[in-house]
Design a protein around this nucleic acid. Structure first.
Lengths: 355, 355
DNA sequence: TTGTATGCGTTATCAT
DNA sequence: ATGATAACGCATACAA
């Protein structure tokens, strides 16, 4: 049986309207899931005893066996909502992230998910879509849902976090009370500059977009400048405003062409996405990468095949994930480090000369 | 203040051990979140009245105002765990998916997340990592967590689903009781064959991996064969076993080379990932795409820049997501459609001749 | 060592 | 229309 969308919709309606009555009777509570009470009755012991067995507390061996048998027989599972209500702990954390489609976010979500599951925590995913209202909405939802904590990569500059909810921020500092985890963006920028110098560049440029919000990735610029200065590398900057189209870079590059040659032999792009765009522009301009111009991006984005899309400064995503979770779940740590920067690494991706 | 991983770890330990005592006193329940009881006391009304106001049930106007004021003053939020316990509904569903790093899965997770949030449902993300034990574990967890339903893209052929838990499968039929949502893979395969024929191909090949599990994507092969037959297109198949390295395709292609020319002028790869790999192989063999060989993939995977990585059959991911959620949450539908196939579309991505 | 009883924060059924 | 109360499933302090 195979159905096509346009055909199935009316079918669904018909199903609902005509067949419902016939089945209504077994919509009752006949197959309600068993509770501890049921297990206790089945095993012929008291409720408390069952609870103890479930939680591994000491209990008479004979009782143990009987309870375990009853559990198996009824296929009992604890209701973690009731448990959470009782313990005021839900073993659930919420992840606020723009989406899971962009490679960096997708990878981050995955690694955080795994890190939490390893510790037997569940993860509520909240895709914010860069919508600041949404972000605040989710924080409220997370709190109302009594999650044990929140990890958030957010853009709302005035996000309000309840006092009671542990929060770890990614890539943006949100006050001394809230730890922030990020790559060592400054070192990454510096690394890019030094790498270009090492590879023989004499005159380089920094291309970047989105200067409005103050966040950690902004430090890439300062790091790059620092690296250029320390290596006596001549540099220029082109910084686009946040929503501006990348076409602004086209003009910038065009204005630096003279006699069919570009005035730069090295470019540092603040993200791999921009690097990718720039490479298309350069190709259109008849310039070869890396022979005429070397390009370094930032993030460590990989293609479907697993190759880097360009030479790049790789963010340590698994380590960021692990650190967020560690910081969030760490009990007995009333004073948490305000900012943790994790080391980045350069990776060759075909857009620089091999060293 | 900026810290590096290797430096921060010992710091954390010191923080924990030395400063803890100083702050221990305010670890008490002083700032426990307000409950309905607190609101009732603050407003000077009964508990039930507060509940009615919260849930929008009719209540005297004067009371309404007083309750709402108290809610605002105490910043009250309902505890959805207590609510869930009472109502036996948690407005939470679990998504079982291998990961959120591969583009197709990441996009699916995103769209399902959005579709659920639109309906005021929360989503528990469960990355299974293709691990069948993990998959079963999550199903248990989801049930124990009393989610209202599960959406699962799973590979465990003998996954056990409790009767009581609504389940919608993606890409793999799991029995008549469980609806399965997928692209129209058969039509997609057929479309690929017909497209290659339209673009002038005379002799084509189908390249595929993973024939072990019977799932919906397997129908791409049958659709392709069907398309070739209807267009009198000569075709050959190369099917690798599931875990086998893609290198098997290299040999296949090499064995079809004669006089520097490939015995095919068109290739249909069962995924964009394989298409991407094949294109690298072809390049190494000195063949041009699309001039010498045209290539069509499957999925609709896009590059960072938003371009398709190859000409491809695009899966309707937002529609799949929407349909899964719709089917899962639809009440009053005791008989659900066993299989829903959604229409795919061809997209040009530079690896075929433009039509 | 085992059983009993209370309360977690809600909702819903009753009397009022 | 409003207020008191039981129940949801579990953990635990306390009584046996």
């Amino acid at each position: 049986m195979q159905l096509i969308l346009s055909e199935i919709l009316p079918v669904i309606r018909i199903f609902r309207e005509t067949i419902y009555r016939r089945y209504a009777f077994d919509m009752n509570k006949t197959n309600s899931t068993p509770t501890m009470k049921d297990v206790a009755a089945e095993a012929g012991v008291a409720l408390g005893t069952v609870s103890k067995v479930i939680n591994g507390l000491p209990v008479g061996e004979a009782y143990r066996v009987r309870v375990e048998e009853a559990v198996r027989k009824l296929n009992y599972q604890v209701n973690s909502y009731a448990q959470g209500l009782k313990l005021q702990k839900t073993r659930t954390i919420a992840l606020l992230i723009p989406n899971t489609m962009e490679p960096f976010y997708g990878a981050l979500a995955y690694h955080i998910n795994i890190a939490l599951l390893k510790r037997n925590y569940r993860m509520l995913l909240c895709s914010t879509d860069y919508n600041m209202g949404q972000e605040q909405e989710y924080v409220k939802m997370a709190q109302q849902n009594k999650v044990d904590g929140i990890i958030g990569l957010t853009y709302n500059p005035e996000l309000v976090i309840e006092e009671g909810t542990p929060f770890v921020a990614i890539d943006r500092s949100m006050g001394a009370q809230i730890p922030c985890v990020a790559s060592d963006n400054f070192a990454g920028g510096q690394m890019a500059a030094e790498k270009l110098a090492d590879l023989g560049c004499k005159r380089v440029a920094f291309l970047r977009t989105g200067a409005s919000l103050t966040n950690e990735p902004n430090k890439r610029k300062a790091g790059f400048e620092n690296g250029c200065l320390s290596r006596n590398l001549d540099y220029e900057m082109k910084i686009l405003n946040d929503g501006d189209p990348y076409e602004g870079f086209d003009e910038f590059l065009a204005s630096h062409m003279q006699g069919g040659k570009l005035g730069f032999d090295g470019l540092f792009c603040v993200t791999d996405g921009i690097a990718y765009y720039i490479m298309k522009v350069l190709r259109r301009m008849g310039l070869r990468v890396p022979e005429d111009v070397q390009v370094i991006g930032f993030d460590g984005t990989r293609n479907v095949g697993g190759d880097y899309i360009c030479s790049t400064i790789v963010q340590p995503i698994p380590e960021i994930a692990e650190m967020c979770v560690e910081l969030l779940l760490q009990e007995n740590m009333p004073v948490k480090p305000p900012l943790v920067c994790l080391p980045v690494a350069y990776a060759y991706g075909g857009t620089t000369m091999e060293s």
